[in-house]
């Protein structure tokens, strides 16, 4: 897993110094640390995989808060640390309500050492993320990467499972979703879900489902659930008023994502319905694991020949 850190400061020497300190103190994480001198340069370097942005407040073509706003669009999970001489008491933060920015004073007695500590915590605990994460997140992501999920035959088999789920629950849309480091990917789909594109993890219902100890999460009405109320309109536009997801759990107990059904009307789900979706999710997981094992055996035999 590569960690990307962006240091922004109009003073080139200062940004290089900061970058070098971070490289040195976080050497065990082997981060990619880039520098930018202006807002425009910084915006050009932002990517979906940017983990942390360390920025001065005053820039020649804007402010550190402009970078916070840009990051909200490009990399909403990234943490932002304002590393500045500017007194935070003099900054107008009202425009940024809700966006969280850490502050470290350049003149602080701890200086760059304190900054490096905070960058490390921000990376390791995703401390500025807007959703909770499983305690086994690193292992979970490693498990996800270990599967061969591009094979067309596998996808066809998984599509049949989403077809079965949609038919059983009498819904127009169903899908098997993968929760990656920063996003939700749609692996197999039924109905209009086939047109859905990757979404940010912070916008995903399923990022909460993967935390469910019971393995199944039902949302009777997204407009009534405090976790999803703020984006209910966009969910309803997708035809998602009610939701149920059952986790795909590997043989090592790690969740790679859920099998989901979506209804465009509020509805409840019975214990029997939850059990049924859980069974279908288990079948999907078995298919993925067997397929990956078969592919591995095939690769070994090919190498032997």
């Amino acid at each position: 897993m590569t960690h990307r850190i962006l240091c922004v400061d109009g003073d080139k020497d200062a940004s290089e110094d900061t970058a070098e300190t971070i490289r040195s103190q976080l050497a065990d994480l082997d981060p990619v640390v880039e520098t930018a001198g202006t807002l425009a340069d910084a915006e050009a370097l932002l990517g979906t995989d940017t983990d942390v942005i360390v920025t001065e407040y005053d820039l020649s073509d804007g402010t550190g808060f402009d970078i916070v706003s840009a990051a909200e669009d490009v990399c909403p999970d990234a943490g932002v640390i304002l590393y500045t001489d500017t007194d935070p008491g003099t900054l107008d933060t009202t425009e940024l309500r809700g966006a969280i920015t850490e502050y470290v004073g350049k003149d602080s007695v701890f200086g760059e050492e304190r900054l490096a500590d905070l960058v490390r915590t921000t990376i390791e605990t995703r401390s500025q993320g807007s959703y909770p994460m499983p305690q086994t997140e690193a292992e979970r992501l490693a498990a996800l990467q270990s599967f061969d999920l591009d094979d067309e035959e596998l996808i066809e088999s998984l599509d049949r499972i989403t077809d079965l789920a949609a038919a059983h629950f009498d819904v127009e849309q169903a899908s098997i979703n993968l929760i990656t480091e920063y996003s939700q990917e749609f692996l197999a789909c039924y109905g209009e879900a086939e047109d859905w594109e990757t979404m940010d993890r912070e916008d995903s219902i399923c990022t909460f489902t993967i935390l469910e100890e019971s393995g199944v999460m039902a949302v009777e009405d997204v407009t009534e659930d405090p976790r999803f109320q703020s984006r209910a309109d966009s969910l309803i536009e997708l035809g998602i008023r009610a939701y149920m997801g059952a986790n795909l759990i590997t043989s090592n107990g790690l969740v790679i994502g859920p099998l989901c059904v979506y209804d465009d009307e509020p509805r409840s789900f019975s214990p029997a319905e939850k059990a049924y979706l859980r069974d279908l999710a288990a079948v999907a997981m078995d298919l993925i694991e067997y397929h990956t094992q078969l592919r591995a055996v095939g690769d070994i035999e090919e190498a032997d020949q």
């Binding site: 304002l82 007194d87 935070p88 933060t93 309500r97 969280i100 920015t101 850490e102 502050y103």
Partner: peptide
Amino acid sequence: LTGIGMKFSA
């Protein structure tokens, strides 16, 4: 929350 967070940090 931005103002609270930054003043808290300082």
